[in-house]
């Protein structure tokens, strides 16, 4: 094993351990760390769910250079699908798969006509779709519970383990997120995934190399949307109650914002972006109502000076401070 690969796997194991033990109270084991309570763990879980949805946006925006303004709507599709199916007694695993599949199919149906026309029109079509999906969630009370929402969504039993306790559910979501992250990583490293990057860098050249640009764009859009569906399938049992508001258009804007802030086209970008959108407000509670104001202001600064997002900013700072370290970046 080469030194850098060793360092990578060590880092990965360390990160995994930290994420697994973050919410656990370690004082019983003689360590001065109290863990997280119910709410802190809830927020960590929400961060993971948000990151899954953001990964999908990153695939669409960062890797294939398109724009989506409907990720919250796909989250909604996944959340309502899972909620309705599990309430009907169908096992969570099936509901989870159905949520992703439905989002994928809707993504294809939306993408086929939209990609026929010019670049920004996919963004416009997704915007219209986001509003319409939200109207359906609101108005079809017989199905979605309308504005009253759906409550009593059960957390799944996995391999005989009930994930109802907040810590168990966190670990469950962590495991699912890890699998989905691995899938995304594998997909981007495969020859198929490398074509995405080629496509983003130079569509004309990619086309001349025999890559069907439209098919790739369509598939990336649908897969990215499916990640939204998966995130929704996790969101419903996390909150145990869903109503239309988290799936509104303004939320879709926030997903796009967080991916670009984290770093569109960088693998860690969505996690950083989701952390800033979900974890940071908890830290910055003292800023109270001004949080979004400050956030918006910082986003504008970031876009003006470092449109690559925070990941790019960190890399740039590092390159400036440690000229040598910059070279070994993977």
């Amino acid at each position: 094993m080469s030194r850098s690969a060793l360092r990578w796997s060590l880092g990965l194991v360390l990160l995994g351990l930290v994420l697994v033990f973050v919410p656990v109270n370690l004082t019983d084991y003689g360590l001065p760390y109290p863990g997280l309570k119910r709410y802190g763990t809830y927020i960590m879980t929400l961060w993971l769910v948000t990151a899954v949805a953001a990964m999908g946006v990153n695939l669409i925006v960062g890797y294939s250079g398109q724009e989506t303004l409907a990720q919250a709507a796909f989250l909604g599709i996944g959340a309502y699908t899972t909620a309705l199916l599990t309430k009907a007694g169908i096992p969570f695993g099936l509901a989870f798969a159905a949520s992703g599949l439905l989002a994928f199919v809707v993504g294809i149906l939306l993408g086929i006509p939209a990609l026929r026309v010019q670049k920004h029109y996919l963004a416009f079509v997704t915007l219209a779709f986001a509003v319409m999906a939200w109207l359906v969630f609101r108005n079809e009370q017989w199905l979605t519970g309308g504005v009253m929402g759906l409550s009593g969504i059960k957390r799944p039993v996995v391999f005989g383990i009930n994930t109802r306790p907040f810590l168990t559910f966190y670990w469950f979501v962590l495991a699912v997120t890890a699998i989905l992250t691995f899938c995304m990583w594998w997909m981007l490293r495969s020859p198929w995934g490398r074509a995405f990057t080629a496509l983003r860098e130079n569509p004309v050249r990619a086309e001349s190399l025999g890559i069907d640009v439209r098919l790739y764009k369509l598939l990336t859009f649908a897969i990215g949307s499916a990640y939204g569906g998966f995130a929704g399938a996790l969101y419903a049992p996390l909150v145990e109650f869903i109503d239309p508001s988290p799936f509104a258009l303004s939320q879709s804007f926030l997903y796009l914002l967080m991916v670009v802030v984290g770093g569109a086209g960088s693998f860690l970008g969505p996690f950083v972006g989701a952390a800033i959108a979900v974890l940071l407000p908890e830290w910055l509670r003292f800023t109270e109502t001004y949080y979004l104001l400050i956030y918006a202001f910082l986003v504008m600064l970031l876009m003006a000076f470092c449109p690559g997002g925070i990941v790019a900013l960190v890399l740039r700072l590092k390159a400036a401070l440690l000229p040598k370290a910059g070279k070994v970046q993977p």
Partner: peptide, 8 residues
Amino acid sequence: TAAAIVLG
């Protein structure tokens, strides 16, 4: 880890 300590 730092984030976790602040959260709790």
